[in-house]
Design a protein around this nucleic acid. Sequence first.
DNA 1: TTCCTTTTAAACACTT
DNA 2: GAAGTGTTTAAAAGGA
Length: 483
Amino acid sequence: MGPTMPPSKKAQSPSSGASASQGMSPPYRQGDAATAASEAEAADLSLSLSASFSKAEDEELTSLSWLHESTDLLNSFSHSGLRSVSPLQDPDGQHPRSPSSSSPSPDDPLLGDAHTAYDLAAGANRKPPYSFSCLIFMAIEDAPNKRLPVKDIYGWILEHFPYFASAPTGWKNSVRHNLSLNKCFKKVDKDRSQSIGKGSLWSIDPEYRHNLIQALKKTPYHPYSPGLATPSTSPPTLPPTFHHSPPLWSGSPLFRKNGGVLLQVPRGVIQNGARVRSQALFPVIRPLPVSPVGSRTSAIRSSLGDYLSRGQDSPSRYSPPPCSEDLQDDHTYSTAKSPSRLCSSQVTAPSSPLDDDDIIAVEIQSDVKPEPREIPLDSHVTTAAATYISQQPLRGQRRSSGVGTLAGSSLPWTKNRARGISDTLPLKKRRAAAVEKPPESDDEEMKEAAGSLLHLAGVRACLNNITNRTAKGQKEQKEALRN
DNA sequence: TTCCTTTTAAACACTT
DNA sequence: GAAGTGTTTAAAAGGA
């Protein structure tokens, strides 16, 4: 029943080929003609970027300030004349995903044409190195009210990633699919928001916003990477293979081989140690989930400013998920897992194949929250936890056929389940309940963000209406009594 | 080879 | 009724 993949798709796949899995001897050669000066400059900029990310990490990533700083730094980077090969370029400078790409292959991949940050991330006609989840997240975050109808999400993606203008229309379906299934995205009840025509507004679920940030953070922006395995105590130095690392974006084999993180760091550390300091893991460069349009970023910055500044004062607002912050976490298929289960699984998983469980355990324990909560997990953590999970009674099987083997570990935890809606209810009722039910945590956030209309508009419309209605009812009662 | 995850396609229901 | 939106299922593809 399933569709047959277009023949081109395989060829377009960023993860095709064994080159990336071969680590530091990629086909994506770049910088053979780079000068020492440009290397030094690149190193400086990379270090600055790294510092920015590290700072964000230290700030518990409760804000997007790291993104803003990185945007500026990256702009500097692109203006410096340095560039990196597009992640989607093949060794010959072609663009596997878009053979028709008109982007030239510079003679000097490192010093070549003045690629902008935009080009680095999403050069026209190149499939962006971001998953749909990241694209949607960026689109929504780029919206003034942090909410967008699906139509505007299309528009944002088209605006920033022209690749999709000529791509098959299926990507819109994928966007909708992501919105529906990805628990990170939250539909704002239409009746309680301004009329936008068809459909609803979509926003980021604050509970999972951090995951998306992490996902974006781990989306490689340019391929400098080999030094990422350098321990944090080591002075960040330009790795010898600085110009020869494979492109690292969410679809790259290396990226995926590392469990959704960038480099050849001990698997356990990266895959489980979401809280491991970025300096340890990404001493040279960090992924840049940067909106390609500077003005947009500025808009984000300004619009988020108030909220972010306060958010840092209340670190619990977007407390990082206890178990994982992986890119994969944002997708319902794999990440909508039982909170308690996964936490316990992760913490107690006795014999994970991972190598650096010590670090992992410490980090996890320091982050685990007592209350049960859906915590997306890294796929490899899932593997570690699979044993535990497989011993548990199956709580649901959405994908009852076709991939039955998945049912136990990955599929029962759908978006709706994530919201705690009774599985026994019909789908529509569950969804309705999900919309009607004001999240408990919202109240606290509402209070916290009382001064931030922007945030309220972006996140709390649903609760707002409930509150308003309650207040209105009380007011009417008072008036009735007076009369 | 099997398992797992992500992407893509398709069908269908619902809404405007 | 048409078009857009949202949900669900299924399969392809690739990595572990």
